[in-house]
Design a protein around this nucleic acid. Sequence first.
DNA 1: CCCTGATTCGC
DNA 2: GCGAATCAGG
Length: 172
Amino acid sequence: MMEAGPGWTKERVELLKRLWSDGRSASQIAAEIGGVSRNAVIGKIHRLGLAGRVLKANGAAPAGGRRPRAETDAPLAETPSVLAPAPPALALIKPHAATPSASVALPESARVTIMELREFMCRWPMGDPSTPDFRFCGDRAISGLPYCTHHSRIAYQPAAERKRDRKVVGFR
DNA sequence: CCCTGATTCGC
DNA sequence: GCGAATCAGG
């Protein structure tokens, strides 16, 4: 008894396929199946030919991919960074009234001033820039993006998803 | 700082 | 075939 080395049995592969097609991430699947790492899951996915869950008709950038194992010391090319998400309505920061008032009641949970903003903090504006209680979200931002996961979803809503969600989000 | 999948290559 | 290490990117 006790299967010592549970390889990719039929059942495990089936579970893998089901979870993957269900939209679960590799790490989640790995945790679900157990005994395997996220890399193992991804590797198996590829060997099964299930990779590329979301195919882009445009044949967009391969997104990811290790270099051909050579020229490790290639000069860093400066990426143009064309991404300009344009925050909801933050374009009018008046120079006046930037003084922090003391009698302002604001939740201390993840809400920071511009001085407290760090690179990995969410820059989602909260409140009116002209009022003293103007703060930023301050939650942990996605690396490379100015917003946290929650606000990134709001800022970068895909056209397909935007159609369904017609709720006005507004800042808070 | 966290995460995602993609690829390579020794085993 | 397997998956850790590494890579690119959000």
